[in-house]
Design a protein around this nucleic acid. Structure first.
Lengths: 213, 213, 213, 213
DNA sequence: AATGAATGAGGGTTCATTCAT
DNA sequence: GATGAATGAACCCTCATTCAT
């Protein structure tokens, strides 16, 4: 299985020339490989072999950094959640006139991030429901963060008189759904619009859906 | 020898009338078991053992009716697609004043169906992306049917002057997303509203999102 | 699986028009089907399904006539052994001048039989060694019959002064091998000669191999 | 850090010199086990469990070295073919007076090899016809090699005036059959002669069968 | 006698994880 | 720290045989 000499050479080189990778670096290397693999094939279809091949690391090494497949998937999720959340900025209360642009900005940043990281998007959209209880709850938590952000916006809007009365909860969920679905169909290849088009249209939908008449 | 004709008659009857029925019944029994299992655990985590235990048949029996796990999953998908599509009714052009109620009706029927069949909903929401190409395309087809329905409605609305101008495609996808997400969060347990509340709120979102000012 | 009405019709017809097949006829029908199948695919690759399909009989019916796969294979072997042995005629002692023709005749009859029944030949040549001890011994017995015939011929020949001295046993086995191998290569498609050519050449080999100088 | 170079050196040495060897050893160990099992029970009756038990390795280990049952059987066949072919030596044209001894030598070497390796012999004699097309053709190829050798010998003999005219093809096949059958009956336990006796007798048959009067 | 749906033991293969070097 | 050969539980599927009708 495979060519032996190159392995030896790679090894030889790495032993002579480089100090062992710092623990965090090596972990990141594996994490990146895992994101690639999970994104391409999904959790179940991804094998440890895929990850270590992508990372260029021996089988045993993997288990020096992660307890197993489930754990690295956990780490992947956490990493991705973090990336998305970084893009969402709370709208400051005082910048009243700026609200439309802020909302637009948030929508656009998240869409752009996800459209540029299809793997990330794919994992967020499609995986993990039903994998097991613990992961489901992690996903729930993630979307709750986002929903909270939307809820706060809607409440604020109501106070300020922009947003019509109504079931805030359902409104928030619906708005989240708009964005997820546009993204999802984009992943499926159904939808070919640009981030700007998508942002603008979603913005108009969102505004229309919740504004006072 | 004995009395031959009666035996033959009973047999004839049973062959024409009952046996094929029995076959379909048994198949349905397995299909139901599969829906239950896939709904609870997802495709990958579901084992043939789960399905046959749930159905209460022997291992070999399963393979008399389905070629394997993939095939029964296909059947399950087809079945579920059919159930959802049955609930969607095309709105007749002439009943102009009836349009709001018709839309409400469609939303409510689909939501009710899916809320009463959480397994069905779960499968539609969460499975199969990334499972494999063939199944992905089946899901794509399904949602395309629904999207077509929504697109037609939006186009009609534009002609009639109800619906504002805009990127029909993204609008349609967004509306689908609203409904899917409300349902999905309901499944996750985040959202506890009743079908009526959900229907009403979604209806208002949808109308607001697309109507002319 | 399959068209139901025709089955019913076939059945109906057979019930109304024919009396149930006599036990021996039905058994023969199954045996013929089995010879066909074993000949085409070998013992292991032949499934009960193949046999009953070929025979046009239901699964359960098979077990009314044979205890199982092994038993019908036993019957097949016995049947084939019988056919071959029928073709071999002992050469009468007195017909001294007739010996060459008698030998030629035996060789030709057996070759012709086997070349016209490739299934029979294939089974005799290739199957059953290693299947299990009992079958092995049956095969051994069969070839012993033939070897006995050859041994007797050689002994007689020695008494009469035609056949050189030597290890009769090995000579007999070798002669059997000549014929088996020519037949076997014929089955494999290597050898395309006619029965007459083969008979003549084998006869010359046999004679040359054992005759006194 | 510690002393790095020695570790690296030991490792380097072991990678280049010992590890690959170990791999081949393990493969050989499995191959030997497979030869034993296939020889004793035949292809179909041999289970992977038999092979790994005989080899004393775990189930998964088997699949590190072979893709499956079919592949290891292929390897076994190749191995055995090689062993037999090694024993056959082409007779040099010039050594005219040596021909008888050379033929005797070939016959004896092959017989001895096969009589000392009953498993090898059993596989060559009895397996694989009808197993599947690919393996059949492999066997055909093997015997063709041997037949070619015999054909060449006969042609040479005709040119030199030793061998009578006749259908070379059938003569060659017959001679092969002599040897195969003697061996086969030896395996079945019918024939108890020593290699020397068998060699001598076969030699005389062969010579008698083909020589000019 | 005939049917064919149902059975379930058994076999081949996969793959996450371990551990000696 | 790094390696990768070894492990074995787990899973899918087949097919000879049974038995209620």
């Amino acid at each position: 299985m495979g060519i032996r000499i190159p392995v030896f050479f790679r090894d030889l080189m790495s032993r002579i020339m480089t100090k062992p990778l710092a623990r965090e670096e090596r972990k990141k290397q594996l994490l990146d490989a895992a994101i690639t693999c999970f994104g391409q094939k999904g959790y179940h279809a991804t094998q440890i072999s895929d990850i270590i091949e992508t990372a260029g690391v021996a089988r045993g090494t993997f288990y020096l950094y992660f307890q197993g497949k489930r754990e690295i998937f956990d780490y992947v999720m956490t990493e991705l959640f973090g990336q998305v959340q970084k893009e969402i900025k709370t709208i400051p209360k005082e910048a009243l006139s700026e609200i439309p642009n802020q909302i637009r900005g948030n929508i656009k940043r998240v869409l752009t991030l996800l459209m540029n990281n299809p793997l990330l998007a794919k994992i967020l959209m499609s995986e993990s429901v039903g994998l097991d209880e613990e992961l489901d709850s992690r996903l729930r938590t993630f979307y709750n963060h986002i929903l909270n952000y939307i809820r706060r916006g809607l409440n604020q809007g109501q106070e300020m008189g922009f947003v019509r009365e109504g079931h805030i909860e359902i409104m928030a969920v619906s708005l989240l759904g708009c964005m997820k679905e546009v993204l999802y169909q984009h992943l499926l290849g159904t939808e070919k619009a640009t981030p700007d088009e998508m942002t603008e249209e979603i913005y108009r939908m969102v505004i229309g859906a919740v504004q006072k008449q």
